[in-house]
Amino acid sequence: MPVAIVTDTTHYIPAAILGEHGVQQVSLYINDADQTVREADIVDLDDYYERLKDLSHAPTTSQPSVGDFLAVYEPLAAAGNDIVSIHLSAAISGTSETARLAGEELKASYPDRQVAVVDSRSACAGLGGVALAAAAAARTGQGVEQVVRHAEDARSALKVWFAIDTLEYLRRGGRIGGAQAWIGGALKVKPILTCDGDIKPVERVRTAGKMFDRMVAYMSELVQDGADCWFIQHIQSPDKAAELVERGREIFDSEPLFVGEIGPVIGAHLGPGMLGVGGMPSRFLP
């Protein structure tokens, strides 16, 4: 491929899918218990989320450095690739800006190489879907401008909702966005949110059962809107995720593109119990 695709670890797509489509990644960091650890190196999610339930335990997160990006970009440039780098929403992280700075620095050594940075305006499956769409375009031999245009079109078509147990994790992490108005009474309900730039409120329901039913109904809405490719993500809710997959198979009449658990960086801001559902037209994907 003349264009290489780079993303960051907050996509949480299964590694096998990411590798199959040749997407490279740069890791964000967790700052926890006086140590800083690459998110990509944290494999015991059960232990991490068990500690996160203690509200006095509040790990922070940080973006990759310019050097982290260059460690991925330089071998790609040396192999003759241009780069399209797709990242976590710029409204909630400086990752895209750091990628841009790394791209400018790369030009000093590789002046003939292009680096285009795309703000996914999303995270998790939203980010992952845009990255896979870019990989699909790159595999057909398209250039940087065409790959970026395809990724941006996919970003506009991709929709994701996520439901969480409480807004407390978003509040304490400072990522609450437009859901700020729900602080207070909403701590006793189940918020349903989306990410379009920043975190935006969608609906509030009273019980976990109603939350699940609303997410099932949303899958039907995705189909009506033209989505025929879908995916599920969760945090420490494998049984509910599996139940959601069963309902999704009935609605979409297909298997999900992927099902996976969200990792430490985004998980620190959402908390255990999260369920996410997303979909997009398959024409954008490999």
Results as ranks from 00 to 15, higher is better:
Lys190Arg: 13
Arg249Tyr: 01
Arg283Tyr: 13
Glu105Leu: 06
Gly271Trp: 03
Ala91Lys: 10
Pro75Asp: 07
Leu270Asp: 08
Ile183Met: 14
His150Leu: 09
Val148Trp: 00
Asp228Ile: 12
Glu104Leu: 14
Ser237Glu: 15
Leu275Gly: 06
Arg204Asn: 09
Gln25His: 04
Thr166Arg: 02
Gln224Cys: 00
Thr7Asn: 11
Val72Leu: 03
Ala179Ser: 15
Pro75Met: 01
Leu88Val: 09
Gln236Phe: 14
Leu257Tyr: 15
Tyr48Gly: 09
Glu261Leu: 02
Gln233Arg: 07
Thr98Ile: 14
Tyr49Lys: 04
Ser65Ala: 06
Gln236Lys: 15
Asp47Val: 07
Ser156His: 08
Ala208Met: 14
Met211Leu: 10
Pro111Gln: 02
Thr7Arg: 03
Ser62Gln: 10
Leu127Val: 02
Gly178Glu: 12
Arg214Gly: 04
Gly267Ile: 01
Val144Asp: 03
Ala137Glu: 06
Val147Ser: 01
Gly174His: 12
Phe258Gly: 05
Gly273Leu: 10
Arg175Tyr: 10
Leu167Ile: 14
Leu244Asp: 03
Glu97His: 13
Gly279Lys: 09
Gly173Leu: 11
Asp196Trp: 12
Met219Asp: 05
Ser27Asp: 13
Lys159Pro: 05
Ala217Met: 11
Glu145Ala: 15
Asp119His: 04
Asp196Phe: 11
Gly278Glu: 09
Arg283Gly: 13
Gly276Leu: 09
Leu55Tyr: 08
Gly276Asn: 07
Leu76Asp: 01
Glu50Lys: 03
Asp225Arg: 13
Ala79Ser: 00
Leu167His: 12
Pro111Glu: 02
Leu18Thr: 13
Leu70Cys: 06
Gly197Asn: 05
Ala4Gln: 05
Leu167Pro: 14
Pro59Val: 09
Arg100Lys: 15
Cys195Gln: 09
Gly226Gln: 13
Gly248Tyr: 02
Pro256Thr: 12
Glu221Met: 11
Leu28Ile: 04
Asp112Asn: 06
Ala157Val: 02
Glu250Asn: 10
Ile5Gly: 13
Ile17Gly: 02
Trp182Glu: 07
Gly173Asn: 14
Gly209Asn: 06
Val37Leu: 10
Ser56Thr: 14
Glu243Asn: 08
Ala116Gly: 01
Asp82His: 11
Val223Tyr: 11
Leu222Ala: 11
Asp8Met: 13
Gly267Tyr: 02
Asp41Arg: 00
Asp46Lys: 14
Cys124Asn: 03
Ala157Asn: 07
Val117Arg: 03
Ile176Ala: 02
Ala268Met: 01
Gly129Glu: 10
Val148Ala: 03
Gln35Arg: 08
Ala116Ser: 05
Arg149Tyr: 04
Val37Gly: 07
Glu20Asp: 07
Gly267Thr: 02
Phe231Asn: 04
Asp239Thr: 08
Arg175Ser: 06
Ala135Lys: 01
Ala241Asp: 12
Ala40Asp: 08
Asp112Leu: 03
Met215Val: 04
Gln24Ile: 01
Asp68Met: 01
Pro14Gly: 10
Lys188Gln: 09
Pro2Phe: 11
Phe258Tyr: 12
Trp182Phe: 15
Pro286Ile: 05
Leu222Ile: 02
Phe69Val: 01
Thr166Tyr: 00
Thr36Arg: 05
Gly103Gln: 09
Gly267His: 01
Asn81Phe: 06
Leu244Pro: 00
Ala91Asp: 15
Ala125Leu: 12
Phe284Val: 08
Leu18Gly: 12
Pro238Val: 01
Arg172Ala: 10
Asn31Asp: 11
Val259Tyr: 10
Lys107His: 09
Glu255Tyr: 08
Cys195Met: 12
Arg149Asp: 14
Ala181Ser: 09
Tyr48Ile: 08
Phe212Tyr: 07
